[in-house]
């Protein structure tokens, strides 16, 4: 009897051991409350920042001041001044989509900083069309440009570490005046664990 129990335990223990080592992967809603949270800048931070920016921009009515509706928007430089390598499209794309859906602004993909178009093929197509149509006024110029900066501030007191991210955006009209500006700040705190960070 004793031997039987021993054999049974010998058989079951590897199962228990390896069963505990298996990984479980599941999908989570990227816009949901169960995404992972770390002090690094992550997907939900861009969503929170974009949500606040869009809310402010639409409520301001700044885009309604364009002479022709919907307004044409060009994306300028979004400077990443954080310690992390991030693609600023994480922020600007959300804003572009929301503006497009709102019907208040359309983004040009044929104009960019230094004459580099976001979509070179669309730029060629447009130039060719304008050439054959013999248009005098070649392209509708953007009414506004969107520029900004993402900043990072780090603080530490005893065993608590704080990282703050500051999202700044400016909407400038074609007279060079910033007609809308907004800032969104996000701060995250992390408490030091027993065995370090």
């Amino acid at each position: 009897m004793n031997r039987k129990i021993k054999l049974c335990l010998l058989f079951l223990s590897p199962l228990l051991f390896f069963g505990g080592c298996s990984t479980h992967t599941r999908y989570v809603e990227t816009s949901g409350p169960r995404t992972l949270n770390t002090t690094e800048i992550n997907i939900q931070d861009f969503s929170y920042a974009a949500e606040d920016m869009i809310k402010s921009l639409l409520a301001s009515g700044a885009l309604d001041k364009a002479p022709k509706q919907p307004a044409v928007l060009a994306i300028s430089r979004i400077i990443n001044n954080t310690t992390q390598q991030i693609d600023t499209d994480m922020l600007t794309k959300k804003i572009r989509i929301a503006l497009n859906q709102s019907g208040k602004a359309l983004t040009t993909t044929t104009m960019g900083i230094g004459g580099i178009a976001e979509d070179p093929l669309a730029q060629s197509m447009q130039q060719e069309k304008d050439f054959y149509a013999d248009k005098k006024e070649l392209q509708r110029m953007p009414d506004f440009s969107l520029s900004g900066k993402i900043l990072e501030m780090r603080d530490r007191l005893d065993d608590v570490r704080q990282v703050a991210y500051i999202f700044q955006l400016s909407l400038t009209n074609n007279e060079g005046l910033a007609v809308w500006e907004e800032e969104k700040q996000l701060a995250k705190q992390e408490k030091k664990g027993v065995f370090g960070w």
């Binding site: 409350p33 969503s47 929170y48 974009a50 949500e51």
Partner: peptide, 9 residues
């Protein structure tokens, strides 16, 4: 209405 800014805040 689906929007990219509809997130749990």
């Amino acid at each position: 209405i689906n929007t990219p800014t509809s997130v749990w805040i």
